[in-house]
């Protein structure tokens, strides 16, 4: 597609690119700060303020060494990856089916179904009743206690619903005439056109599952070896909580220089995989554009 460059277009481009560069810089800074802090001299880190542009003192890997020496981190990685994979599979199936159903205009029960789902976005029973449900199902202290309660989400269903809505009805008309069932229409005809949307909910889900710790902290009290990474990370980040600062030794621990450093390192170790995941999802966004372009 060749674009004519009008003067207005040039000015717009300059402003747009300029804005994007500035905004990009603002967005990189906090992460850069964390990265630089994680390899800084812990003593100097303690007396620093504001954003770090380069590491303080000699670059040190001590923090990472301490983090990776913790056997829980590896266990946590494995568990998290397992949870992310399983929940994503279930989530995709559920959201696609749900979204497809809600986008069927001919379905009489559609409105009721939508309200049924929307209510779950607003109302929740709270911690104790949820715990009792999980206990009643007999899945307390198993992986299912983490996987099942969080693997479907009305929000994703709504997003898929509007994605299906976005498609022109003409696509399915011909298939319908050929006598194709709804499942065939959904999977064969409509779904391939919604790659970008599926990529989005997959990404959202991966990020959410990657960061989620609450269910594990509640439903896995006796199975530390099933904890996801995020829960281990939270332990490191939140340690030295004022609530339990009672004895002298607690206070002395707080003065431990490295504690601060480790917090930054854990942040990096915990988020790096996710940052690397984005370009993969991005591929689908760009691919969509190209597809449109080529066809034109």
């Amino acid at each position: 597609m060749v674009e004519k460059l009008t003067p207005g277009r040039v000015i717009f481009n300059i402003l747009n690119y300029g804005f994007m560069i500035l905004f990009g810089i603002a967005c990189v800074l906090p992460l850069w700060h964390v990265l630089m802090a994680s390899v800084s001299d812990p003593r100097m880190l303690m007396s620093a303020s504001g954003i770090l542009f380069r590491p303080l003192g000699d670059i040190t890997m001590d923090g990472y060494r301490m983090v990776l020496a913790n056997p829980s981190i590896i266990t946590g990685y494995i568990n998290t990856i397992l949870y992310v994979l399983i929940t994503t599979v279930i989530m995709i199936a559920g959201s696609v089916i749900g979204g497809f159903l809600l986008s069927r205009r001919e379905l009489k029960l559609k409105g009721l179904l939508a309200i049924f789902l929307l209510i779950t976005m607003m109302f929740g029973g709270g911690m104790i009743p949820s715990y009792m449900v999980i206990k009643g199902l007999g899945i307390l202290n198993t992986r299912w206690a983490v996987i099942l309660p969080g693997c479907m989400n009305a929000f994703y269903i709504m997003m898929m619903k509007s994605a299906f809505d976005q498609l022109s009805p003409s696509y399915e008309e011909s298939a319908k005439l050929d006598g194709a069932g709804p499942l065939t229409i959904m999977v064969r005809i409509l779904l391939p056109m919604l790659q970008a949307n599926v990529a989005v909910i997959v990404m959202f889900n991966v990020i959410m599952q990657w960061n989620s710790w609450f269910n594990a902290s509640i439903y896995l009290p006796k199975s530390r070896d099933l904890w996801p990474l995020a829960l281990y990370m939270r332990e490191v980040l939140i340690n030295n909580d004022t609530a339990k600062m009672a004895s002298s030794l607690d206070a002395e621990q707080a003065a431990d220089y490295t504690a601060n450093l480790v917090k930054y390192c854990v942040t990096v170790v915990g988020t790096l995989p996710l940052l690397c995941a984005y370009p993969f999802a991005q591929k689908y966004f760009v691919a969509g554009v190209q597809m449109g372009g080529v066809k034109g």
Binding site: G94, I97, L101, G124, G125, G126, P129, L183
Partner: peptide, 21 residues
């Protein structure tokens, strides 16, 4: 039929605990 598993899922894990309200 397609809707059954989805509805069942939300009924158990989302509506189940709502007695807590």
């Amino acid at each position: 039929l397609l809707a059954v598993p989805v509805v069942l899922f939300f009924a158990i894990f989302n509506y189940g605990p709502m007695f807590g309200l």
